[in-house]
Write a protein that binds this DNA or RNA. Structure first.
Length: 486
RNA sequence: CGGGGCGUAGCGCAGCCUGGUAGCGCACCUGCCUUGGGCGCAGGGGGUCGGAGGUUCGAAUCCUCUCGCCCCGACCA
Protein backbone atom coordinates (compact mmCIF):
# COMPACT_ATOMS: atom_id res chain seq x y z
CA UNK A 1 0.00 0.00 0.00
CA UNK A 2 1.58 3.23 -1.14
CA UNK A 3 1.80 6.29 1.03
CA UNK A 4 -0.69 9.01 0.32
CA UNK A 5 0.56 11.28 -2.42
CA UNK A 6 2.94 8.74 -3.94
CA UNK A 7 2.03 7.03 -7.18
CA UNK A 8 2.92 3.33 -6.97
CA UNK A 9 6.07 2.34 -8.84
CA UNK A 10 4.31 -0.34 -10.83
CA UNK A 11 1.64 2.05 -12.03
CA UNK A 12 3.76 4.88 -13.41
CA UNK A 13 7.48 4.76 -12.82
CA UNK A 14 8.12 8.34 -13.99
CA UNK A 15 5.39 9.80 -11.85
CA UNK A 16 6.53 7.70 -8.91
CA UNK A 17 10.02 9.18 -9.24
CA UNK A 18 8.68 12.72 -9.33
CA UNK A 19 6.43 11.99 -6.34
CA UNK A 20 9.42 10.75 -4.34
CA UNK A 21 11.41 13.88 -5.16
CA UNK A 22 8.52 16.10 -4.16
CA UNK A 23 7.48 14.07 -1.13
CA UNK A 24 10.97 14.04 0.33
CA UNK A 25 11.32 17.77 -0.41
CA UNK A 26 14.55 17.30 -2.34
CA UNK A 27 14.05 19.84 -5.10
CA UNK A 28 11.82 22.52 -6.49
CA UNK A 29 11.24 23.23 -10.16
CA UNK A 30 12.97 26.48 -11.07
CA UNK A 31 10.07 27.29 -13.41
CA UNK A 32 11.52 30.71 -14.23
CA UNK A 33 14.68 29.13 -15.67
CA UNK A 34 14.06 26.48 -18.28
CA UNK A 35 14.96 22.96 -17.27
CA UNK A 36 16.59 23.98 -14.00
CA UNK A 37 15.81 22.93 -10.46
CA UNK A 38 16.47 24.32 -7.02
CA UNK A 39 18.40 21.82 -4.93
CA UNK A 40 16.54 22.16 -1.65
CA UNK A 41 18.46 21.62 1.59
CA UNK A 42 17.81 17.86 1.85
CA UNK A 43 18.61 17.28 -1.82
CA UNK A 44 21.73 19.38 -1.54
CA UNK A 45 22.78 17.54 1.61
CA UNK A 46 22.73 14.29 -0.37
CA UNK A 47 24.98 15.95 -2.93
CA UNK A 48 27.31 17.06 -0.15
CA UNK A 49 27.53 13.46 1.06
CA UNK A 50 28.31 12.35 -2.50
CA UNK A 51 30.94 15.06 -2.75
CA UNK A 52 32.56 13.96 0.51
CA UNK A 53 32.77 10.33 -0.58
CA UNK A 54 34.16 11.16 -4.00
CA UNK A 55 36.48 13.96 -2.99
CA UNK A 56 38.10 11.69 -0.43
CA UNK A 57 38.75 9.03 -3.07
CA UNK A 58 39.88 11.52 -5.71
CA UNK A 59 42.44 12.98 -3.34
CA UNK A 60 43.51 9.57 -2.05
CA UNK A 61 44.50 8.66 -5.60
CA UNK A 62 46.78 11.66 -5.95
CA UNK A 63 44.60 14.38 -7.45
CA UNK A 64 44.19 17.97 -6.30
CA UNK A 65 41.28 20.36 -6.75
CA UNK A 66 41.36 23.61 -8.75
CA UNK A 67 38.81 25.85 -10.42
CA UNK A 68 38.57 27.22 -13.97
CA UNK A 69 36.28 29.90 -15.47
CA UNK A 70 32.62 29.30 -16.16
CA UNK A 71 32.85 31.09 -19.53
CA UNK A 72 34.81 29.69 -22.43
CA UNK A 73 35.72 31.61 -25.60
CA UNK A 74 33.52 30.18 -28.29
CA UNK A 75 36.47 29.55 -30.58
CA UNK A 76 37.92 27.09 -28.04
CA UNK A 77 35.02 24.78 -28.52
CA UNK A 78 35.69 24.69 -32.26
CA UNK A 79 39.24 23.39 -31.97
CA UNK A 80 38.46 19.71 -31.59
CA UNK A 81 36.27 18.55 -34.46
CA UNK A 82 34.27 15.78 -32.82
CA UNK A 83 33.94 17.78 -29.63
CA UNK A 84 32.26 20.71 -31.43
CA UNK A 85 29.91 18.41 -33.23
CA UNK A 86 28.95 16.74 -29.96
CA UNK A 87 28.39 19.81 -27.87
CA UNK A 88 27.64 22.77 -30.16
CA UNK A 89 23.89 22.10 -30.34
CA UNK A 90 23.48 22.30 -26.60
CA UNK A 91 25.62 25.23 -25.48
CA UNK A 92 24.30 28.54 -24.21
CA UNK A 93 26.18 31.63 -25.35
CA UNK A 94 26.94 34.98 -23.77
CA UNK A 95 27.01 37.60 -26.50
CA UNK A 96 26.59 40.82 -24.52
CA UNK A 97 28.30 42.04 -21.38
CA UNK A 98 29.01 45.42 -19.84
CA UNK A 99 26.27 46.83 -22.00
CA UNK A 100 28.09 46.00 -25.23
CA UNK A 101 28.18 43.30 -27.85
CA UNK A 102 31.21 41.10 -27.25
CA UNK A 103 33.81 40.81 -30.01
CA UNK A 104 33.87 37.05 -29.41
CA UNK A 105 30.99 35.32 -27.66
CA UNK A 106 31.60 33.11 -24.68
CA UNK A 107 29.89 29.81 -24.19
CA UNK A 108 28.78 28.71 -20.75
CA UNK A 109 30.83 25.55 -20.18
CA UNK A 110 29.06 22.32 -21.09
CA UNK A 111 32.32 20.61 -19.95
CA UNK A 112 35.79 22.07 -19.55
CA UNK A 113 38.23 20.08 -21.69
CA UNK A 114 38.82 23.06 -23.93
CA UNK A 115 39.52 25.83 -21.46
CA UNK A 116 41.51 23.53 -19.22
CA UNK A 117 43.43 22.33 -22.27
CA UNK A 118 44.36 25.93 -23.00
CA UNK A 119 45.88 26.37 -19.55
CA UNK A 120 47.51 22.97 -19.49
CA UNK A 121 49.34 23.93 -22.67
CA UNK A 122 50.92 26.78 -20.71
CA UNK A 123 51.68 24.71 -17.63
CA UNK A 124 53.16 21.60 -19.14
CA UNK A 125 56.75 21.97 -20.34
CA UNK A 126 58.67 18.90 -19.35
CA UNK A 127 58.19 15.21 -18.67
CA UNK A 128 58.90 16.22 -15.07
CA UNK A 129 55.57 18.11 -15.01
CA UNK A 130 53.70 14.88 -15.68
CA UNK A 131 51.36 13.43 -14.75
CA UNK A 132 49.28 16.52 -14.04
CA UNK A 133 46.29 15.42 -11.96
CA UNK A 134 43.58 18.03 -11.35
CA UNK A 135 39.91 17.83 -10.50
CA UNK A 136 37.35 20.59 -10.40
CA UNK A 137 33.96 20.78 -8.68
CA UNK A 138 31.77 22.95 -10.84
CA UNK A 139 28.46 23.65 -12.47
CA UNK A 140 27.92 23.15 -16.18
CA UNK A 141 25.10 23.90 -18.56
CA UNK A 142 23.69 21.86 -21.42
CA UNK A 143 20.53 22.88 -23.23
CA UNK A 144 18.99 19.42 -23.24
CA UNK A 145 15.72 18.75 -25.01
CA UNK A 146 13.98 17.15 -22.13
CA UNK A 147 14.82 17.52 -18.47
CA UNK A 148 13.84 15.85 -15.25
CA UNK A 149 14.92 16.58 -11.69
CA UNK A 150 18.48 15.41 -10.95
CA UNK A 151 18.64 12.97 -13.86
CA UNK A 152 18.89 15.61 -16.53
CA UNK A 153 18.76 19.33 -15.85
CA UNK A 154 19.91 22.29 -17.92
CA UNK A 155 22.38 23.33 -15.27
CA UNK A 156 23.92 20.61 -13.17
CA UNK A 157 26.68 20.18 -10.64
CA UNK A 158 29.51 17.74 -11.10
CA UNK A 159 33.17 17.05 -10.72
CA UNK A 160 35.36 16.85 -13.78
CA UNK A 161 38.86 15.47 -13.56
CA UNK A 162 41.37 16.49 -16.22
CA UNK A 163 44.76 14.87 -16.32
CA UNK A 164 47.83 14.96 -18.56
CA UNK A 165 50.19 12.06 -19.11
CA UNK A 166 53.39 11.33 -20.94
CA UNK A 167 52.15 8.36 -22.91
CA UNK A 168 49.16 6.30 -23.88
CA UNK A 169 49.62 3.62 -21.25
CA UNK A 170 49.82 6.04 -18.38
CA UNK A 171 46.66 7.82 -19.56
CA UNK A 172 44.92 4.48 -19.95
CA UNK A 173 45.97 3.43 -16.45
CA UNK A 174 44.52 6.65 -15.05
CA UNK A 175 41.25 6.19 -16.92
CA UNK A 176 40.74 2.68 -15.57
CA UNK A 177 41.94 3.52 -12.08
CA UNK A 178 39.35 6.30 -11.80
CA UNK A 179 36.61 4.02 -13.05
CA UNK A 180 37.40 1.25 -10.60
CA UNK A 181 38.97 2.76 -7.53
CA UNK A 182 37.03 6.01 -7.46
CA UNK A 183 33.69 5.67 -9.24
CA UNK A 184 32.75 2.01 -8.93
CA UNK A 185 34.07 1.90 -5.38
CA UNK A 186 32.01 4.92 -4.38
CA UNK A 187 28.78 3.90 -6.10
CA UNK A 188 28.90 0.35 -4.76
CA UNK A 189 30.02 1.12 -1.22
CA UNK A 190 28.40 4.46 -0.46
CA UNK A 191 25.42 4.50 -2.81
CA UNK A 192 24.84 0.77 -2.35
CA UNK A 193 24.24 0.22 -6.07
CA UNK A 194 26.10 -2.49 -7.95
CA UNK A 195 27.57 -1.35 -11.26
CA UNK A 196 28.73 -2.90 -14.49
CA UNK A 197 32.15 -1.62 -15.51
CA UNK A 198 33.21 -1.57 -19.08
CA UNK A 199 34.07 0.23 -22.26
CA UNK A 200 31.68 2.23 -24.43
CA UNK A 201 31.20 1.49 -28.10
CA UNK A 202 32.19 4.01 -30.78
CA UNK A 203 28.61 5.12 -30.98
CA UNK A 204 28.36 5.87 -27.28
CA UNK A 205 31.79 7.30 -26.51
CA UNK A 206 32.47 10.91 -25.47
CA UNK A 207 32.76 13.46 -28.26
CA UNK A 208 36.47 13.77 -28.89
CA UNK A 209 37.66 10.75 -26.91
CA UNK A 210 39.84 7.89 -28.01
CA UNK A 211 37.95 5.54 -25.69
CA UNK A 212 35.30 5.98 -23.04
CA UNK A 213 34.68 3.76 -20.06
CA UNK A 214 31.60 3.80 -17.89
CA UNK A 215 29.87 2.30 -14.92
CA UNK A 216 26.22 1.46 -15.40
CA UNK A 217 23.64 0.88 -12.68
CA UNK A 218 20.22 -0.69 -13.04
CA UNK A 219 17.13 1.19 -11.93
CA UNK A 220 14.06 -0.53 -10.55
CA UNK A 221 12.31 -0.53 -13.92
CA UNK A 222 15.18 -2.46 -15.47
CA UNK A 223 16.59 0.53 -17.32
CA UNK A 224 20.24 1.49 -17.17
CA UNK A 225 21.63 4.67 -15.74
CA UNK A 226 25.18 5.73 -16.50
CA UNK A 227 26.64 6.52 -13.11
CA UNK A 228 30.07 7.72 -14.20
CA UNK A 229 32.35 7.98 -17.20
CA UNK A 230 36.07 8.10 -17.67
CA UNK A 231 37.66 9.00 -20.99
CA UNK A 232 41.03 8.36 -22.49
CA UNK A 233 41.21 11.41 -24.76
CA UNK A 234 44.30 10.17 -26.54
CA UNK A 235 46.24 13.05 -28.07
CA UNK A 236 43.15 14.68 -29.57
CA UNK A 237 42.90 17.56 -27.14
CA UNK A 238 46.66 17.80 -26.67
CA UNK A 239 46.94 18.37 -30.42
CA UNK A 240 44.01 20.79 -30.56
CA UNK A 241 45.43 22.87 -27.70
CA UNK A 242 49.09 22.18 -28.23
CA UNK A 243 49.83 20.49 -24.95
CA UNK A 244 53.41 19.38 -25.48
CA UNK A 245 56.37 18.47 -23.31
CA UNK A 246 60.05 17.76 -23.70
CA UNK A 247 60.77 14.10 -23.03
CA UNK A 248 63.91 12.68 -21.42
CA UNK A 249 65.68 12.91 -24.75
CA UNK A 250 64.61 16.54 -25.16
CA UNK A 251 62.22 15.57 -27.96
CA UNK A 252 58.98 17.56 -28.05
CA UNK A 253 55.99 15.23 -27.64
CA UNK A 254 52.26 15.73 -27.62
CA UNK A 255 50.87 14.74 -24.26
CA UNK A 256 47.99 12.32 -23.59
CA UNK A 257 45.00 13.53 -21.62
CA UNK A 258 42.04 12.06 -19.77
CA UNK A 259 38.81 13.43 -18.39
CA UNK A 260 36.20 11.90 -16.12
CA UNK A 261 33.10 13.03 -14.32
CA UNK A 262 30.09 12.25 -12.25
CA UNK A 263 27.22 14.59 -11.66
CA UNK A 264 24.18 15.37 -9.53
CA UNK A 265 22.56 12.66 -11.62
CA UNK A 266 23.89 10.35 -8.90
CA UNK A 267 21.27 11.83 -6.59
CA UNK A 268 18.65 10.66 -9.06
CA UNK A 269 20.29 7.24 -9.31
CA UNK A 270 20.20 6.85 -5.54
CA UNK A 271 16.54 7.79 -5.42
CA UNK A 272 15.50 5.57 -8.32
CA UNK A 273 17.69 2.70 -7.25
CA UNK A 274 16.41 2.26 -3.71
CA UNK A 275 13.12 4.02 -3.03
CA UNK A 276 9.75 2.31 -2.73
CA UNK A 277 6.04 3.10 -2.64
CA UNK A 278 6.39 4.54 0.87
CA UNK A 279 8.79 7.21 -0.30
CA UNK A 280 12.51 7.85 -0.40
CA UNK A 281 14.97 5.18 0.70
CA UNK A 282 18.51 6.37 1.32
CA UNK A 283 21.63 4.33 2.01
CA UNK A 284 22.80 5.31 5.52
CA UNK A 285 26.19 6.53 4.28
CA UNK A 286 24.50 9.19 2.15
CA UNK A 287 21.55 10.00 4.40
CA UNK A 288 21.70 13.58 5.69
CA UNK A 289 19.84 12.31 8.77
CA UNK A 290 20.65 8.71 9.70
CA UNK A 291 18.54 8.51 12.83
CA UNK A 292 15.47 10.57 13.61
CA UNK A 293 14.40 10.66 17.22
CA UNK A 294 10.74 11.07 18.08
CA UNK A 295 10.03 12.02 21.69
CA UNK A 296 6.70 10.74 23.01
CA UNK A 297 4.88 12.33 25.92
CA UNK A 298 1.45 13.30 27.25
CA UNK A 299 2.33 16.12 29.62
CA UNK A 300 4.99 18.75 30.17
CA UNK A 301 6.41 16.67 33.00
CA UNK A 302 6.70 13.62 30.77
CA UNK A 303 8.20 15.71 28.03
CA UNK A 304 10.88 16.95 30.42
CA UNK A 305 11.94 13.45 31.48
CA UNK A 306 11.83 12.15 27.90
CA UNK A 307 13.91 15.04 26.58
CA UNK A 308 16.38 14.59 29.40
CA UNK A 309 16.77 10.93 28.46
CA UNK A 310 17.27 11.84 24.77
CA UNK A 311 19.96 14.36 25.68
CA UNK A 312 21.74 11.77 27.78
CA UNK A 313 21.52 9.09 25.06
CA UNK A 314 22.68 11.29 22.22
CA UNK A 315 25.49 13.00 24.14
CA UNK A 316 27.95 10.36 22.94
CA UNK A 317 26.56 10.35 19.39
CA UNK A 318 27.94 13.71 18.33
CA UNK A 319 30.52 13.36 15.60
CA UNK A 320 29.65 9.68 15.10
CA UNK A 321 26.05 9.63 13.93
CA UNK A 322 23.94 12.11 11.99
CA UNK A 323 20.74 12.44 13.99
CA UNK A 324 17.82 14.80 14.42
CA UNK A 325 15.41 15.19 17.31
CA UNK A 326 11.91 16.04 16.08
CA UNK A 327 10.72 18.35 18.84
CA UNK A 328 7.75 19.77 16.96
CA UNK A 329 4.97 19.99 19.50
CA UNK A 330 1.94 20.41 17.30
CA UNK A 331 2.30 17.14 15.40
CA UNK A 332 1.43 13.68 16.65
CA UNK A 333 4.04 10.89 16.70
CA UNK A 334 2.14 8.98 14.03
CA UNK A 335 2.33 11.92 11.68
CA UNK A 336 6.05 12.22 12.26
CA UNK A 337 6.61 8.49 11.64
CA UNK A 338 5.02 8.81 8.24
CA UNK A 339 6.76 12.01 7.34
CA UNK A 340 10.26 10.72 8.12
CA UNK A 341 9.55 7.50 6.25
CA UNK A 342 8.64 9.48 3.14
CA UNK A 343 11.87 11.43 3.63
CA UNK A 344 13.92 8.27 3.70
CA UNK A 345 15.56 8.46 7.12
CA UNK A 346 17.04 4.94 7.57
CA UNK A 347 16.38 4.53 11.27
CA UNK A 348 13.79 5.93 13.70
CA UNK A 349 14.15 5.94 17.44
CA UNK A 350 11.18 6.52 19.72
CA UNK A 351 11.66 7.53 23.32
CA UNK A 352 8.61 7.65 25.59
CA UNK A 353 7.81 7.43 29.29
CA UNK A 354 7.84 3.63 29.21
CA UNK A 355 11.32 3.66 27.69
CA UNK A 356 12.60 6.05 30.31
CA UNK A 357 11.32 3.69 32.96
CA UNK A 358 12.73 0.55 31.33
CA UNK A 359 16.02 2.18 30.23
CA UNK A 360 15.20 1.21 26.66
CA UNK A 361 14.27 2.79 23.32
CA UNK A 362 12.17 1.67 20.39
CA UNK A 363 13.93 1.35 17.03
CA UNK A 364 12.26 1.04 13.65
CA UNK A 365 14.05 0.65 10.31
CA UNK A 366 12.84 2.50 7.24
CA UNK A 367 13.27 -0.71 5.33
CA UNK A 368 13.57 -4.32 6.34
CA UNK A 369 15.03 -7.11 4.27
CA UNK A 370 13.91 -10.32 5.90
CA UNK A 371 10.21 -10.53 5.28
CA UNK A 372 7.27 -8.26 4.73
CA UNK A 373 6.27 -5.43 7.01
CA UNK A 374 3.60 -6.31 9.52
CA UNK A 375 0.24 -4.98 8.36
CA UNK A 376 2.00 -2.40 6.27
CA UNK A 377 3.98 -1.15 9.23
CA UNK A 378 7.62 -1.50 10.05
CA UNK A 379 8.18 -3.72 13.08
CA UNK A 380 9.84 -2.03 16.02
CA UNK A 381 12.44 -3.50 18.28
CA UNK A 382 12.99 -2.47 21.88
CA UNK A 383 16.62 -2.26 22.87
CA UNK A 384 18.47 -1.19 26.01
CA UNK A 385 19.92 2.29 26.18
CA UNK A 386 23.27 0.86 27.25
CA UNK A 387 25.55 0.39 24.25
CA UNK A 388 23.04 2.03 21.95
CA UNK A 389 25.53 3.95 19.80
CA UNK A 390 27.28 0.72 18.83
CA UNK A 391 23.97 -1.02 18.18
CA UNK A 392 22.71 1.81 15.99
CA UNK A 393 25.99 1.97 14.07
CA UNK A 394 25.74 -1.76 13.45
CA UNK A 395 22.13 -1.49 12.28
CA UNK A 396 23.01 1.30 9.86
CA UNK A 397 25.80 -0.80 8.41
CA UNK A 398 23.39 -3.73 8.08
CA UNK A 399 20.94 -1.53 6.22
CA UNK A 400 23.73 -0.28 3.95
CA UNK A 401 24.72 -3.85 3.10
CA UNK A 402 21.11 -4.97 2.82
CA UNK A 403 20.36 -2.28 0.25
CA UNK A 404 23.35 -3.30 -1.82
CA UNK A 405 22.43 -6.96 -1.70
CA UNK A 406 18.83 -6.21 -2.59
CA UNK A 407 19.89 -4.09 -5.57
CA UNK A 408 22.34 -6.77 -6.68
CA UNK A 409 19.67 -9.45 -6.48
CA UNK A 410 17.28 -7.28 -8.46
CA UNK A 411 19.89 -6.74 -11.14
CA UNK A 412 20.66 -10.44 -11.38
CA UNK A 413 16.98 -11.28 -11.67
CA UNK A 414 16.65 -8.71 -14.46
CA UNK A 415 19.72 -9.67 -16.45
CA UNK A 416 19.14 -12.04 -19.34
CA UNK A 417 21.02 -13.73 -22.11
CA UNK A 418 20.05 -13.59 -25.75
CA UNK A 419 21.27 -15.90 -28.46
CA UNK A 420 19.49 -14.16 -31.30
CA UNK A 421 17.90 -10.88 -32.19
CA UNK A 422 14.35 -11.97 -31.38
CA UNK A 423 15.41 -12.89 -27.86
CA UNK A 424 17.24 -9.59 -27.50
CA UNK A 425 14.17 -7.61 -28.58
CA UNK A 426 11.91 -9.44 -26.19
CA UNK A 427 14.18 -9.52 -23.13
CA UNK A 428 15.59 -6.01 -23.31
CA UNK A 429 12.10 -4.79 -22.36
CA UNK A 430 12.66 -6.22 -18.91
CA UNK A 431 16.27 -5.40 -18.09
CA UNK A 432 19.87 -5.94 -19.15
CA UNK A 433 20.66 -8.37 -21.93
CA UNK A 434 24.07 -9.96 -22.27
CA UNK A 435 24.92 -11.26 -25.70
CA UNK A 436 27.77 -11.85 -28.11
CA UNK A 437 28.49 -8.84 -30.25
CA UNK A 438 30.45 -8.33 -33.43
CA UNK A 439 28.25 -5.68 -35.03
CA UNK A 440 29.13 -2.30 -36.47
CA UNK A 441 28.16 1.15 -35.35
CA UNK A 442 25.46 1.08 -37.97
CA UNK A 443 24.10 -2.22 -36.62
CA UNK A 444 23.92 -0.70 -33.16
CA UNK A 445 22.00 2.31 -34.49
CA UNK A 446 19.61 -0.03 -36.24
CA UNK A 447 18.99 -1.93 -33.03
CA UNK A 448 18.40 1.29 -31.13
CA UNK A 449 15.90 2.34 -33.75
CA UNK A 450 13.97 -0.90 -33.37
CA UNK A 451 14.29 -1.59 -29.64
CA UNK A 452 15.24 1.77 -28.03
CA UNK A 453 18.10 -0.13 -26.44
CA UNK A 454 21.80 0.62 -26.79
CA UNK A 455 24.98 -1.11 -25.76
CA UNK A 456 25.62 0.28 -22.31
CA UNK A 457 29.03 -1.28 -21.98
CA UNK A 458 31.26 -4.05 -23.22
CA UNK A 459 31.97 -5.33 -19.70
CA UNK A 460 35.55 -5.58 -18.48
CA UNK A 461 34.92 -9.08 -17.26
CA UNK A 462 34.46 -11.35 -20.25
CA UNK A 463 33.86 -15.08 -20.50
CA UNK A 464 36.45 -17.17 -22.22
CA UNK A 465 35.91 -18.25 -25.80
CA UNK A 466 33.88 -16.95 -28.68
CA UNK A 467 30.25 -16.93 -29.71
CA UNK A 468 27.81 -15.95 -32.41
CA UNK A 469 26.90 -12.27 -32.69
CA UNK A 470 23.31 -11.69 -31.60
CA UNK A 471 22.62 -9.48 -34.61
CA UNK A 472 24.96 -10.33 -37.48
CA UNK A 473 25.55 -13.98 -36.66
CA UNK A 474 29.25 -13.46 -37.21
CA UNK A 475 31.82 -14.92 -34.87
CA UNK A 476 32.13 -12.60 -31.86
CA UNK A 477 34.84 -12.27 -29.25
CA UNK A 478 33.05 -9.98 -26.84
CA UNK A 479 29.90 -9.98 -24.77
CA UNK A 480 27.96 -6.71 -24.84
CA UNK A 481 25.27 -5.53 -22.44
CA UNK A 482 22.20 -3.99 -24.03
CA UNK A 483 19.62 -1.94 -22.13
CA UNK A 484 17.33 0.98 -22.41
CA UNK A 485 18.97 3.92 -20.72
CA UNK A 486 18.07 7.06 -18.84
C1' C B 1 12.00 19.74 -31.73
C1' G B 2 7.41 16.12 -33.06
C1' G B 3 2.91 13.78 -30.55
C1' G B 4 -0.37 13.91 -26.18
C1' G B 5 -2.08 16.09 -21.51
C1' C B 6 -2.37 20.17 -18.11
C1' G B 7 -1.91 25.50 -15.94
C1' U B 8 -7.90 27.98 -10.81
C1' A B 9 -5.10 29.38 -2.72
C1' G B 10 1.13 26.18 -0.40
C1' C B 11 -0.53 20.97 -2.42
C1' G B 12 -4.45 18.00 -4.91
C1' C B 13 -8.70 19.21 -7.60
C1' A B 14 -14.10 20.90 -9.13
C1' G B 15 -16.21 24.95 -11.83
C1' C B 16 -15.44 26.00 -18.33
C1' C B 17 -19.38 22.49 -22.56
C1' U B 18 -24.35 26.23 -21.76
C1' G B 19 -20.48 33.75 -19.83
C1' G B 20 -23.52 36.76 -14.57
C1' U B 21 -19.08 39.26 -8.28
C1' A B 22 -14.55 31.90 -7.31
C1' G B 23 -15.48 26.76 -4.55
C1' C B 24 -14.03 21.76 -2.10
C1' G B 25 -10.34 18.55 0.52
C1' C B 26 -5.61 18.74 2.74
C1' A B 27 -2.11 22.28 4.56
C1' C B 28 -1.79 27.19 7.29
C1' C B 29 -3.33 30.74 11.73
C1' U B 30 -6.01 31.19 16.88
C1' G B 31 -8.25 28.67 21.06
C1' C B 32 -9.50 24.29 23.65
C1' C B 33 -8.34 19.22 23.50
C1' U B 34 -4.99 15.33 22.19
C1' U B 35 0.09 12.85 21.69
C1' G B 36 3.54 4.81 21.35
C1' G B 37 1.21 4.99 13.40
C1' G B 38 -1.26 10.49 9.19
C1' C B 39 -5.94 13.34 16.65
C1' G B 40 -10.69 15.99 17.38
C1' C B 41 -13.92 20.35 17.81
C1' A B 42 -14.81 25.57 16.98
C1' G B 43 -13.41 29.98 14.66
C1' G B 44 -10.21 32.38 10.89
C1' G B 45 -6.69 34.06 6.89
C1' G B 46 -5.22 33.30 2.02
C1' G B 47 -6.78 34.00 -5.36
C1' U B 48 -5.02 40.04 -10.34
C1' C B 49 -8.23 31.75 -12.29
C1' G B 50 -0.10 31.22 -16.06
C1' G B 51 0.48 35.97 -19.25
C1' A B 52 -1.11 39.40 -23.28
C1' G B 53 -4.74 40.85 -26.64
C1' G B 54 -9.77 40.35 -28.49
C1' U B 55 -15.40 39.44 -28.42
C1' U B 56 -19.19 41.09 -24.79
C1' C B 57 -23.04 45.41 -20.70
C1' G B 58 -20.22 41.49 -18.23
C1' A B 59 -14.85 36.44 -19.27
C1' A B 60 -11.84 31.35 -14.95
C1' U B 61 -15.60 30.16 -18.81
C1' C B 62 -15.73 32.04 -25.88
C1' C B 63 -11.59 33.47 -29.75
C1' U B 64 -6.25 34.60 -31.02
C1' C B 65 -1.32 34.74 -29.55
C1' U B 66 2.23 33.57 -25.90
C1' C B 67 4.85 31.39 -21.61
C1' G B 68 5.46 27.26 -18.54
C1' C B 69 4.91 22.30 -16.62
C1' C B 70 4.07 16.85 -17.07
C1' C B 71 4.03 12.28 -20.13
C1' C B 72 5.74 9.59 -24.77
C1' G B 73 9.65 9.91 -28.69
C1' A B 74 14.63 11.76 -30.82
C1' C B 75 19.51 14.03 -27.76
C1' C B 76 22.38 13.54 -23.26
C1' A B 77 26.19 13.33 -17.10
Amino acid sequence: MAKEGITPRAKDYSQWYLDIVRGADLADYAEVVRGCIVFKPTGYAIWEAIQRGLDERIKATGHVNAYFPLLIPKSFLMKEAEHVEGFAPEVAEVTRAGGEELAEPYVIRPTSETIIGYFYAKWVRSWRDLPLLINQWANVMRWEMRTRPFLRTTEFLWQEGHTVHADHDDAERETLMILNEVYADFVEKDMALPVLRGIKTEKEKFAGALRSYAIEAMMQDGRALQAGTSHNLGQNFAKAFDITYADKNNQVQHAWTTSWGVSTRLIGATIMGHSDDDGLVLPPRLAPIQVVIIPIYKSDAEKATVMEAIDRITAEWRGKLRFHVDTRDHLTPGFKFNEWEIKGVPLRMEVGPKDVQKQSVALAQRIIFDGPAIEGRKPKSFVPQAGLAEHVTMLLEQIQQGLYQRALKFREEHTFKAANYDELKERVEKGFVRCWWAGSRHDEEQIQEETKATIRVIPNEQPRGKGKCVYTGKEAEKIAVFARAY
